[in-house]
């Protein structure tokens, strides 16, 4: 089992993933720096992976829990960088190359503040305890 976070902790709510990792110090965990190969390399060989990322939405702090089949994939993500591969495209590559763990979950937390600086917005901060609890339950299953 590996816990993976995407996001930048110096861009406010985008840092919800790395902040969540801080709460699991004894778990194998990986803060993905963004390039596709490093994510595939860390996912390879695991039976289970849980990934946490911030997403845009209308309800800051709302938590979505998606299995691989449930992740919305029909709409291409905006590509604004290269070495930082888009999350879903990189996960599709992991699936196509047989590196995606059979038990994969993506927790997506709706964010409101992507400005520079540390610390989450009040809504996302308030969702953190629930996020931690749900992930612990998934790990124990």
């Amino acid at each position: 089992m590996i816990l993976v976070a995407a996001g930048n902790r110096f861009r406010r709510d985008d840092g919800v993933g790395p902040r969540l990792l801080d709460l699991f110090p004894t778990q194998e965990r990986f803060h993905w720096p963004g390039d596709p190969l490093s994510l595939l390399s860390r996912l390879e060989g695991h039976e289970q992976a849980i990934m946490v990322d911030a997403v845009q939405g209308d309800t800051p702090g709302q938590i979505h829990r998606w299995t691989w089949d449930e992740i919305p994939k029909e709409k291409p993500e905006a590509v604004t960088s290269s070495h930082r591969g888009p999350v879903v495209e990189t996960l599709k590559l992991a699936e196509a190359s047989g590196k995606l763990p059979p038990h994969f979950l993506l927790y997506a937390v709706e964010a409101s503040d992507y400005s520079w600086g540390e610390g989450l917005s009040a809504s996302v901060e308030a969702a953190l305890a629930s996020l931690e609890k749900r992930i612990r339950q998934d790990i124990e299953r």
Binding site: P36, L37, S38, L40, S41, E44, E89, K92, L93, A96, S97, K99
Partner: peptide, 20 residues
């Protein structure tokens, strides 16, 4: 994208991973 490349040349991801 590499996703399309991998469909045509399935070895590239494996090669990339081993080098990485």
């Amino acid at each position: 994208s590499v996703l399309e490349l991998n469909q045509r040349f399935p070895q590239v991801v494996e090669q990339g991973l081993r080098l990485k």
